[in-house]
Design a protein around this nucleic acid. Structure first.
Lengths: 153, 153
DNA sequence: TCAATTTATATCGTTCACGATGCAAAAATA
DNA sequence: TATTTTTGCATCGTGAACGATATAAATTGA
């Protein structure tokens, strides 16, 4: 009985990749009525915590590149959720602020986390077990951040 | 001290989404020289376990839709990794088989899993802790599969 | 002060990911 | 057998993700 690393079933990354995709799928019933996608929901979470942030801060908090976030914000501006104004001190910056619609969406989104927990309980049973993964995921993310930085230097 | 579900830092899904993206990034140094992407690597893993499978089987094993896998396989055919031939019993099927190049790539990819483990150890320390998440991830994936099926009915 | 460098954002091209739709072959059923 | 339904795959459109590159503004430093 030998351990075979090239087997799909032995790969942690495949599970992360799949779990992430399926979890995003589970958000669909709640985000579709609001007319937003999961990455757009993440941007809103960031702005609901603190309004009026430059693109870079948002990208940094989501661990995304600005060339991912810029088009995302452009789409959100087009759909009336945010405004993008030139920075006053630093005119290279684009300050992203919530519109009335963006602010009000928070009320509608308020119950999404508990809805998702309920869905998970319904089909699988244990939110506790899942939340126990958080410290490990955080350590993994921190390590991967450093690793990928080393690659790009 | 109230728990705030709408805070980014309290969201498990965001961590899965981030961990998955960053892990895929960590594969780059090993996959780029082979000229393949991470999803293409997953397809190869499936075909290395068993050659000559219809599109549907591959999609099912990767938990992807066929409309994701079909273009993926078309690109892999164009880059000379696989062939796609009409099924003999069921002519609706497309049987995907490895080319010589696809078979030989297994040798070059052999050490990727241990390289990735080494990278994780280097920057974070504990592969054991990460592999301990596997049962939980599997339960989560299984529950989400059922949940998302219920949605689409 | 002026050139060189860095920084913040944007643009472009390629590859996923997936909902919606189309189509032909197979299976089910009348 | 003829018709309906299902199945397997493909195509199209949209929205991420991200590497590479561009551009203008700010910063550094000679």
């Amino acid at each position: 009985m030998t351990y075979e690393p090239l087997k799909l079933e032995n790969q942690v990354c495949f599970r992360l990749y799949t779990a992430a995709r399926l979890t995003m799928g589970a958000y669909h019933p709640y985000l579709d009525p609001l007319g937003i996608t999961y990455p757009q929901y993440l941007v809103l979470l960031v702005l609901w915590e603190q309004d009026k942030q430059p693109v870079n801060d948002i990208a940094h908090k989501l661990l995304l590149e600005t060339n991912t976030v810029t088009p995302l914000l452009q789409r959100m501006e087009k759909s009336g959720l945010v405004n993008r104004t030139k920075g006053k001190e630093d005119s290279r910056q684009r300050i992203v602020s919530l519109t009335k619609k963006g602010i009000e969406m928070r009320e509608q989104a308020k119950h999404i986390p508990e809805c998702l927990s309920a869905d998970i309980i319904k089909n699988e049973g244990s939110v506790e077990e899942i939340t126990q993964m958080i410290p490990t995921l955080d350590k993994l993310i921190e390590g991967l951040k450093q690793n990928n930085q080393q690659i790009n230097n």
